[in-house]
Design a protein around this nucleic acid. Structure first.
Length: 674
RNA sequence: GCCGCCUUAGCUCAGUCGGCAGAGCGAUUCACUCGUAAUGAAUAGGUCCGGAGUUCGAUUCUCCGAGGCGGCACCA
């Protein structure tokens, strides 16, 4: 339904809208459409059962609007909690807010929920939904709430935090708002009995019936109470809820589509990379087919960087401790670094140290190494901007639970660059970096971008450096971001400790958002390493550093592209670009001849001489997402032609060989996606 | 790291209420030589994740560990 049909009503129009002249007017009197589940009264979301004061403006909230969906999902969370407490009366309640596409509710109970429990809970929820319970709001004092919720220790804690609920935990504000405390009673419409109640700010649906058939419980997980690792872990049940069964089904299909594109699955199916247990968690090996695609990515990016005035450098994977003391990484990120390798220590027979050893660390960042290249000789303003780039492999000791395919690993390669600029060059250079980032990402077929400007935290401990410098830098970044014409979101408190940054987010083919590139200003490391350049007037000046990565992690970028294309890469990136499929063995040599010509033009081509029928070969190479299959039999050989079959099943038969070669080469050169 | 679930052939998965294990795909071989998504047959392939315990006997039960998955927390 279309919410725009419902213009805001004001109660001066009560005569037309209200049914009971002179009586109290509620949202139910104003809005009869069943798709309207709540209202905004003078901007505040409220239940339809609430009284609308004279002169107030009341806008309808439909179930399919963003607010309406949140209300639906939050009400579904209440139904879940009621179902849990019906089956397990000893379960204690945490919080249960709506989230993207669904809801969750946290419970404390001794035994873990099983997948069978989820089925039983879903059944119980269906019963509650069918009963058509009403959600009835009731204002209570703190004392009344404490008395009623004496058995719910987590709720009592939230009452104590009232007003500070936003800070108590993400989602906690749905339970207790800043104003008065309220409890929602779930009332059976037939008997008028209160079936269940929960501390809640609301609003809620008029009836559980509206949750209809569009909900499902999805999974169970552990979650720290109030998100804090030192507090107990509760059991969180996730669910999804939609206004209709069709929308639920569409959501489930989106999940299925995402699962099909999962880079871990495609990586195995397409023989691109793997994570051998023998090597260790979060450490990938690249098989020939994956290495070809990755290599094409790297080579293309490298060419473009050189065109843009970047100089490639190489640095080691390991370094003495002092470097990361100077850079402060050991202090700030020490926990995420791999433990040191202790070198060169010598001891006598009693075990006394006779020669002091040195600790070496795997590098978690390339920047200190690039700084040392800068520092190796004195620099002039004429050298700047100096742009040092490296595909530098770094190692971070990620917690085991954080690891995820290629997107969160313990060893990865940054397409890292550090730009050393004068303060006057900062804004122009940053602009160039941002334009370069966008242009290069577009080469890979990404088009939908958004920027986030991360600014420093209000708390002084979270950042270092001079406040005025932060201001200047942040203002410069803001101007650059706005000049790009992209959507810019400002994120206070999200900056790195050493400077503000612009992050670039990209939306993929199925609408998911990924963070890719980052451009970070750094006034701190030049200070710590005492970097200098000689200005035109002969004075010594301090350069500013710009850290930037386009892909962030090459491995992760590869994974994102793999999912974006669902494994069907553009021709230039495809591990195998052409496969020749002879109709019968006799025609293989004819195809080999064409393949040799293609190979001569740099095309990655194979001829399938396996002992299979051509139909099977076509199926195999289609599943392997090869962009061009060239088929030839008696007809094509006689005519000096070849027949194309594309990944989508379409075909183009009897194409003269020269033209076929021309078309393939052109598709590679233009980075076409066929 | 924490909570929960999982780990059987190269891959996807059955199975054994405790008696030394199976399918499909893939691989190999043979036959077939075929015009746009699976030709047929045969063969090979297993420390049932690792270790310890219980037991006459453990892939199965218990404990410990490793790895994976879903979340939480973390993410320079």
């Amino acid at each position: 339904m279309d919410a725009s049909h419902h213009r805001p009503l004001t109660l001066t129009e009560r005569a037309q809208a209200a049914i009971y002249d002179g009586a109290v007017t509620t949202g139910f009197d104003l809005f009869s459409d069943r798709a309207i589940v709540a209202m905004r009264v003078d901007g505040e979301l409220q239940d339809l059962a609430r009284e609308v004061p004279d002169g107030a403006s009341a806008e309808p909230v439909t179930i399919d609007s963003p607010d309406g969906l949140d209300i639906l999902r939050h009400s579904a969370a209440h139904v879940l909690a009621q179902a849990v407490q019906r089956i397990n009366p000893e379960a204690r309640l945490g919080i249960g807010p709506p989230v993207q596409d669904g809801f969750y509710y946290d419970f404390d109970l001794p035994e873990a929920f099983s997948s069978d429990d989820l089925k039983a809970l879903q059944k119980e929820m269906e019963r509650i939904v069918k009963a058509g319970q009403r959600f009835v709001r009731r204002v209570v004092t703190d004392e009344e709430a404490r008395a009623e919720l004496a058995d719910e220790p987590y709720k009592l804690e939230l009452i104590g935090l009232k007003g500070g609920a936003e800070k108590a935990a993400e989602g906690a504000s749905v339970e207790v708002g800043a104003g008065e405390l309220t409890i929602y009673d779930n009332v059976d419409p037939k008997t008028g009995e209160v079936a269940w109640k929960d501390l809640c700010r609301g609003p809620h649906l008029p009836s559980t019936r509206l949750i209809g058939n569009g909900f499902a419980l999805t999974r169970v997980a552990g979650a720290y109470w109030r998100g804090k690792t030192d507090l107990p872990q509760l059991q969180r049940i996730y669910g999804t809820a939609w206004p209709s069964k069709d929308e639920l089904r569409a959501y489930q299909q989106r999940l299925e589509e995402a699962a099909k594109r999962d880079h871990r699955k495609l990586g195995r199916e397409l023989d691109l990379f793997s994570f051998p247990d023998e090597i260790g968690s979060g450490l990938s090996v690249w098989h020939p087919r994956g290495a070809i695609a990755r290599g094409e990515m790297e080579q293309h990016a490298r060419r473009r960087h050189i065109e843009q005035g970047y100089s490639y450098v190489y640095t080691p994977h390991i370094t003495k401790r002092d470097l990361f003391v100077t850079s402060n990484h050991l202090v700030t990120y020490g926990e995420g670094m791999w433990p040191p390798i202790h070198m060169d220590e010598e001891r006598d027979d009693e075990g006394n140290v006779t020669k002091q050893g040195v600790d070496y660390y795997l590098k978690p960042m390339n920047c200190p190494m690039h700084i040392l290249i800068y520092k190796d000789r004195s620099r002039s303003y004429r050298d700047l901007p100096l742009r040092l780039a490296e595909n530098g492999t770094v190692y971070r000791n990620e917690l085991s639970g954080a690891l995820h395919g290629l997107t969160r690993v313990r060893g990865f390669t940054q397409d890292d660059a550090h730009l050393f600029v004068t303060p006057e060059q900062l804004e122009e250079e940053t602009t160039k970096v941002l334009e370069f980032v966008l242009s290069l990402l577009q080469d890979f077929g990404l088009t939908d971008f958004r920027l986030e400007l991360s600014m420093r935290d209000d708390e002084k401990e979270k950042w270092i450096g001079d406040e005025a410098i932060w201001e200047t830098a942040t203002d410069a970044l803001r101007r650059v971001a706005q000049a790009s014409g992209l959507d810019v979101v400002e994120e206070p408190g999200e900056a790195a400790f050493y400077g503000p940054k612009i992050d670039l987010k990209v939306t993929d083919a199925i609408g998911r958002s990924w963070q890719l590139s980052t451009v970070q200003l750094d006034f701190n490391l030049p200070e710590r390493f005492e970097l200098e350049y000689t200005a035109a007037d002969g004075s010594k000046q301090r350069p500013i550093m710009i850290h930037r990565a386009l892909f962030g992690s090459i491995e992760r970028f590869f994974a994102i592209l793999l999912e974006h294309y669902a494994g069907a890469f553009p021709v230039w990136l495809a591990p195998v670009q052409v496969v020749g499929v002879p109709v019968a063995e006799d025609y293989a040599d004819y195809l080999e001849d064409i393949a040799a010509q293609l190979r001569g033009k740099g095309v990655r081509v194979e001829v399938d001489r396996s002992d299979e029928r051509m139909q099977k070969k076509i199926r195999t190479h289609t599943l392997m997402k090869v962009p061009f299959q060239l088929i030839a039999g008696e007809k094509d050989r006689d005519a000096g032609s070849v027949s194309f079959r594309f990944r989508d099943g379409t075909q183009d038969n009897g194409v003269p060989v020269d033209e076929a070669i021309r078309r393939i080469v052109e598709a590679i050169e233009t980075k076409a996606h066929v």
